[in-house]
Nucleic acid binder design. Structure first.
Length: 266
DNA sequence: GCCAAAATAT
DNA sequence: GATATTTTGG
């Protein structure tokens, strides 16, 4: 089983998006600023609707920008937060987070935090989680051969950790620590030298990976490096520190597109 | 007009 | 936070 674990992840790794595939998430957008500007209406019932877009939601600073068509037209009257598109990359991140948290701790809020994607809301995650669970359910019953298959394209794009399907003997308390051994892969280049000194340290780190803090740190580190390489287009942005970035990248016609970049949690 | 995806309500 | 329902996009 253990072999399986490392195996599935290894496989997963192989299937990781190539640089070309790792394009920024994009979605049609109506700038939040605009939304905020006109906000109002959304809480037509009582006020249980917690999302009062009045205050700047999850956009730090350099986040969302107005689309090119931010002209003064007044679509605002009916503004809503732009629909989030779960790209395979984003979903992968999601699955990653869920996997690392373990089913137990995989709740919207936690997942959201771990994912560390700017602009992503708890609601977004909750909704997606709902679908994901449904998908898992289907997987269990329908099995790989059942009706499952090409439907759920998105979910199929990212492998499902075995533990999800097999509630084996794994204790609910343990957090899943797959090959979150960024060390082994990341340090390769420095592993060469005879510096047993260094080697030691690495081993040590490798050994520790138990605390949540460490785990999460590793997680983030990993995710970051992963999503850092490709993403950026030539001229577009300055990928300074991995600060949240919303960038209108492309657009066709009058439609603007928003791209989300994963960031480190802070 | 249908279906899936995401948002929103309960 | 989970689930049901509605809205929206394709």
């Amino acid at each position: 089983m253990r072999e399986e674990d490392s195996n599935w992840f290894a496989k997963w790794e192989e299937e990781l998006p190539s640089p070309e595939e790792l394009i920024p998430l994009s979605q049609s957008l109506i700038t939040p600023d605009l939304a905020i500007a006109f906000d109002l209406h959304r809480n037509n019932n009582s006020n249980s609707g917690q999302p009062l877009p009045q205050t700047t939601p999850p956009q730090p600073n350099s986040s969302a920008e107005i689309a090119g068509d931010s002209t003064g037209d007044e679509p605002a009257r009916t503004l809503k937060r732009p629909r989030l598109v779960w790209t395979p990359q984003l979903h992968k991140r999601f699955v990653d987070a869920v996997a690392h948290l373990g089913i137990k701790n995989a709740v919207p809020k936690t997942i959201m935090q771990l994912m560390s994607v700017d602009g992503l809301t708890r609601e977004n995650v909750a909704s997606h989680l709902q679908k994901y669970r449904l998908y898992l359910k289907r997987m269990k019953s329908g099995g790989g051969g059942g009706g499952s298959g090409d439907s759920d394209h998105l979910f199929a794009s990212s492998p499902v950790p075995p533990h999800f399907l097999h509630p084996t003997s794994r204790q609910s308390s343990d957090l899943f620590i797959p090959s979150f051994v960024p060390i082994s892969t990341q340090q390769q280049h420095i592993a060469a030298p005879p510096s047993q000194f260094l080697h030691r340290q690495i081993s040590a780190v490798n050994f520790i990976s138990r605390t949540k803090a460490t785990d999460q740190a590793m997680f983030l580190a990993r995710q970051q490096s992963e999503l850092q390489q490709p993403v950026f287009k030539p001229s577009s942005l300055h990928l300074h520190s991995q600060v949240a970035n919303y960038t209108q990248d492309l657009k066709s016609g009058a439609k603007t597109v928003l791209t989300l970049f994963p960031i480190r949690d802070d």
